[in-house]
């Protein structure tokens, strides 16, 4: 398929993929409220354009790694909604057979390497995946996602240096949703333009409108090609926003309702694309309705599966500690 952003089929795919994440996350939030999902559950609502645009920019065989706000990344990587939702409910049908939960899921098949709970820890790991690509001499690229808060961890800069020195094929995708838990980026960060963080390592970086899936896709392709050509790492700072609290237990008193409302109403990635598609005649209302219905069914099915799938066998407690 020729990946031009003007391609109507591609836009429809973007729409479908973003909507799947949105509806999936809404349902996950409900299941949490019902006590079917426990522990920490970090929803991706608002940030959908980032993973959908980036995933479209890579090829099968390229790798993806991220932190704990990972449901969207997994769905975008093609992992089954049933298996993701069943992991959220801690059932045997989940991707980690119930042992990992919301923050820790993996798929060797889809080259999704997790799912990590320690802020910043995935950054050297993603750099290591890129190192393996280089070592093997293939042309695979690793997308390494992290947040604006994570961008202050020291291991991020240790990684940048190694990636630049060894010209590793890694795109650092900084999801700048402007808050790390309750801390607005200005309160914790001396240089808030995070794409400049690579300057002293000679890593090129750019700022991208992370609420616009087409802009993400375009920037993603450029960055991925840079890596594939063997020119080393690349930084993309995605300006984005999370609508919900940090996790399910965050009352989010650190920002105004108006701020959230403004983002939802004026910058929503799904509504934005929807309007553009209609205006361009890429799809009509009936076509959009059909997609909405299709997604609704997929998500309802995943919730059903996640509740019906049995709990893991007690013996599983002792498996997978060692290979």
């Amino acid at each position: 398929m020729s990946k031009t952003a003007s391609n109507a089929a591609l836009l429809i795919q973007f729409y479908r993929d973003m909507l799947l994440i949105r509806r999936f996350e809404e349902r996950a939030g409900q299941l949490y409220g019902m006590g079917l999902i426990g522990g920490f559950c970090h929803l991706y609502i608002g940030q959908e354009a980032v993973v959908v645009g980036m995933q479209a920019a890579i090829e099968p065989g390229d790798q993806v790694i991220t932190a704990y706000r990972d449901h969207g990344h997994m769905l975008a990587a093609g992992m089954e909604p049933d298996g993701v939702m069943a992991e959220l409910t801690g059932r045997s049908g989940g991707y980690s057979r119930g042992k990992g939960g919301s923050m820790h899921m993996f798929s060797r098949e889809k080259n999704f390497y997790g799912g990590h709970g320690i802020v910043g820890a995935q950054v050297p790991l993603g750099t290591g995946l890129a190192f393996a690509n280089r070592y093997r001499g293939n042309d695979r690229v690793c997308l390494t996602y992290f947040g604006d808060g994570a961008a202050n961890q020291g291991q991020v800069y240790e990684s940048f240096n190694m990636a630049a020195v060894w010209k590793l094929p890694v795109v650092y995708v900084i999801e700048n949703n402007q808050y790390a838990m309750g801390t607005a980026i200005q309160r914790s960060t001396s240089e808030t333009h995070l794409h400049k963080r690579g300057v002293s390592f000679n890593i090129p970086g750019e700022e991208v409108d992370g609420m616009d899936v087409e802009a993400v896709f375009a920037a993603g392709r450029k960055a991925v090609e840079h890596c594939r050509r063997g020119e080393g790492p690349y930084i993309l700072e995605m300006k984005t926003y999370r609508y919900r609290g940090h996790s399910m237990s965050d009352p989010a008193k650190y920002r105004s309702k108006e701020e959230v409302q403004e983002m939802r109403e004026k910058h929503d990635p799904i509504e934005g694309l929807r309007a553009r598609m209609l205006a361009a005649g890429a799809i009509d209302e009936a076509g959009l309705k059909a997609i909405d219905k299709e997604i609704k069914d997929v998500v309802a099915q995943s919730a059903e599966f996640a509740q019906m799938s049995p709990e893991p066998d007690p013996k599983e407690l002792w498996t997978d500690v060692y290979a």
């Binding site: 522990g39 992991e87 119930g98 042992k99 919301s102 893991p312 407690l317």
Partner: peptide, 16 residues
């Protein structure tokens, strides 16, 4: 605690 990393599933966590 059992000599394993903490599992997420409710039944396994209880056992751990």
């Amino acid at each position: 605690g059992k000599d394993v990393p903490m599992p997420y599933a409710a039944n396994l966590e209880k056992l751990a």
